[in-house]
Amino acid sequence: MNKIHLTINDNQFEAEPGATIMEVALENNIYIPHLCYNPDLVPGGICRLCRVEINNDKLALACRTPVEEGMIVRTNTPEIDAAIRPIVELIIADHHSTCRGCPANGKCELQKIMAHLHIDRRRIDNLRLPQNDLPLEALTPFLDYDPNKCVRCGICVQTCEKIYGTSHIYFLNRGYDTKIAYFETVAHCDFCMECVKNCPVGVLIPKNV
């Protein structure tokens, strides 16, 4: 198969046909903000953060757009920034206030995005923050769930689905109240820990049992 040639931020790259912009960019150490993307899973495209500009024209999701010959991609235009910065600020405003003690501290995708975009905390003060932290919830017999940190990216759901065919955990409720819940079905969670490993922000906390 012939390689595909494309330009990302003025640099030339070669890629396999069928690869997505996200795959090519990450492979070449170009960071594109993302929360719901995981290389092992089908791109959900629901965090909406991996916007890139294609051929000096429209914005598209890097995780769901396959590369094309001669494509010109930009990952850092002012339009992209204007589109995604408010979203990231919303996530942070809704997120647990401190990173101290968080198991994801240091490897957290949200921290990475904040650093990448140089998020200004003062702008977040203009938003309305949740009044109180919600309590931890016992998700499965083995896991606690922290709704204050969860970005509802669905990676845990997809991970479980991939391994077991049907997911033990799934979305519950609607709108802002959407959260992850345990649906005890035919099979029980056997504590494979894959969802914990894949969570981008450290929402799932193994219990000491």
């Binding site: 929360l35 629901i46 965090c47 909406r48 953060l49 408010p86 979203i87 919303l90 996530i91 405003a93 809704d94 938003l127 309305r128 970005v151 509802r152 669905g154 979305f171 409720n173 609607r174 709108g175 802002y176 109240d177 959407t178």
Partner: peptide
């Protein structure tokens, strides 16, 4: 809108809630 958002994508889920609160 914030009650009827499906809660799947982040801009709609958090954005409608934030706009409502403001």
């Amino acid at each position: 809108a914030q009650q009827e958002s499906c809660g799947q994508c982040i801009p709609c889920r958090l954005g409608t809630k934030q706009m409502f609160e403001i």
